[in-house]
């Protein structure tokens, strides 16, 4: 039997040192795994692997020591529990996410749904090299957005509602950026200093802040052989449509300009950051 390693790898089968054994990478979206999936994964690890799993650095699950001959049976057993192999190689990888606003008190945006939507749009898409998306719900950056090729960070744009304010002074105290000053009972907010953390609005006892959730996007992050912190290009994005337009534009830019096996960051450096800036600004402005 001729083994098609490229197909196997695309299907998440990572060749092990041990002959004919694979560490099977599973598809996980936004770090969420159902108990039903866990049961199927456990059964496969017991029956076909070595009775354990490995948690990867990007919220993935791998089942080591799967044998070549068992691949079809393993896929079938996983499918029963709603689990399936993930991807490796030159394509869009696992979309990672923290729990976000649905669960975390600091969360500024919903992350689970966004991870699913991004995954549906892009997961597995063939590109010149791997491409990673990561979503973090707020400035605390538990999910380390800037280490991804495209990182999304949630934020909240705040605007003071004078009538609802009881002038308690709390927002001024909780702001870590010194962006709020209370002068004669009036909240004065410096947009330059504000980093969209949302702490003032979350703390305000009378909800005297209007909250507009949105996204800050970073481009070109790397955290492997080379390390680079992704950089933002456009300001705070307030709607998902614009966010997706920007993601589309970045992926198209990468697809059209990258050499084979060149990560996004190096394509940006070689082609010119101004070229990417132009494409992203155009998408931001609605083109």
């Amino acid at each position: 039997m001729a083994t098609d390693y490229a197909t196997l790898k695309k299907g998440g089968f990572m060749r092990q040192k041990q002959k004919d054994h694979f560490s099977l990478r599973l598809s996980v979206v936004g770090g969420q795994v159902s108990t039903e999936q866990l049961v199927a994964i456990t059964e496969v690890a017991n029956q076909y692997g070595h009775g354990y799993i490995h948690l990867t650095s990007r919220q993935g699950i791998e089942i080591p020591f799967i044998q070549l001959k068992d691949i079809d049976a393993v896929k079938e057993a996983l499918a029963k529990g709603g689990a399936k192999p993930g991807v490796c190689g030159p394509r869009v990888r696992t979309v990672t996410a923290c729990q976000g606003a649905a669960v975390c008190p600091n969360g500024c945006i919903e992350t689970e749904e966004l991870a699913k939507e991004l995954s549906e749009r892009y997961f597995g898409r063939e590109l010149p090299h791997k491409f990673k998306f990561g979503i973090t719900g707020c400035r605390n950056n538990c999910l380390k957005a800037e280490e991804n090729d495209l990182g999304i960070k949630g934020g909240i744009r705040v605007s003071w509602i004078e009538d609802a304010c009881i002038n308690c002074g709390l927002c001024e105290k909780v702001c870590r950026e010194g962006a709020i000053q209370i002068e004669n009972g009036k909240v004065v907010l410096s947009q330059e200093k504000c980093n969209y953390c949302g702490r003032c609005a979350f703390s305000c006892p009378t909800d005297a802040y209007e909250k507009t959730p949105g996204y800050l996007v970073s481009f070109g992050g790397l955290f492997g052989n080379q390390i680079n912190q992704g950089e933002t290009i456009v300001p705070f994005i307030e709607d998902q449509e614009t966010l997706f337009r920007i993601c589309d534009a970045a992926l198209t830019f990468f697809d059209e300009n990258a050499k084979p096996s060149e990560r996004f960051k190096f394509t940006i450096d070689r082609v010119g950051k101004d070229k990417l800036d132009a494409v992203v600004w155009k998408a931001y402005e609605g083109a």
Binding site: C168, K173, V174, F202, C204, P205
Partner: peptide, 25 residues
Amino acid sequence: NEGEPVMNVPRSVKDEGHQILKLIE
């Protein structure tokens, strides 16, 4: 105290559904 306590405790109290009336420095 100032610092972490004033940044976090009022917020947690609010999240639990209680009503904050005043903060005095």
